[in-house]
């Protein structure tokens, strides 16, 4: 885990200011929640931390390193998207394994180690029996768990989750939070 710092972040889309001077510090291992009405800039803030949007003003620091203009792949963050953004042509297993497969050499992982990690996270989210299915064959809640698994399998410095629990049933939601 890492320390995430936002310093006076401003993001404008044309004449609309989506994020207006946000500064915050999220400590190492801290569970931090952004709350607010829809359209207030929560998702944009997350996307700025992930590197999917670049701020017009301000700085993003991860573990004290300025990553404001760093590519998402070089930030070591994982993200769960609000609409899950699963890869429709891949099975659930391949979806979860994708972040590990894509940087297999960099992480020094063997295929069996990847399999082990995928199985571990699949078991935790109770989706072991769905691994050979395609996303199109899953319910909304199941898709969301797969998206969550894809982020959890990474063990990155930062986890970003955009409405990650909205489709999970209450029982599972409780266990995920803990």
């Amino acid at each position: 885990m890492a320390v995430v710092e936002l310093r006076n972040i401003v993001k404008r889309f044309g004449r609309v200011t989506a994020v207006d001077g946000v500064s915050l510090r999220i400590g190492d291992g801290e569970f931090y929640i952004l709350l607010g009405p829809s359209g207030c800039g929560k998702t944009t803030t997350l996307r700025i931390i992930a590197g999917l949007e670049y701020p017009d003003e301000g700085k993003v620091l991860i573990d004290g390193v300025d990553v404001t203009n760093t590519e998402p792949k070089d930030r070591d963050v994982a993200m769960v998207f609000q609409n899950y953004a699963l890869y429709p042509h891949m099975t659930v297993y391949d979806n979860i394994a994708f972040p590990l497969m894509i940087r297999r050499k960099k992480l020094g992982l063997t295929r069996s180690e990847i399999r082990e990690r995928v199985m571990e996270v699949a078991k935790m989210l109770r989706i072991e029996d769905l691994l050979s299915r395609k996303p199109g064959q899953l319910s909304g809640g199941q898709q969301q768990r797969v998206a969550l698994a894809r982020a959890l399998v990474r063990r990155p410095k930062v986890w970003l989750m955009d409405e990650p629990l909205s489709n999970l049933d209450a029982l599972l939601r409780g266990s995920r939070r803990s």
Binding site: G51, Y87, H89, M90, I102, R150, R154
Partner: peptide, 27 residues
């Protein structure tokens, strides 16, 4: 095609060519 799919791959560590070859083309 939903752009979030490519953004997810970008966050997952894929480069532009990998995104095109492994995500966009098969989809």
């Amino acid at each position: 095609l939903p752009r979030e799919m490519e953004e997810a791959a970008r966050v997952d560590g894929a480069g532009e060519l990998q995104i095109f070859l492994r995500i966009v083309l098969p989809a």
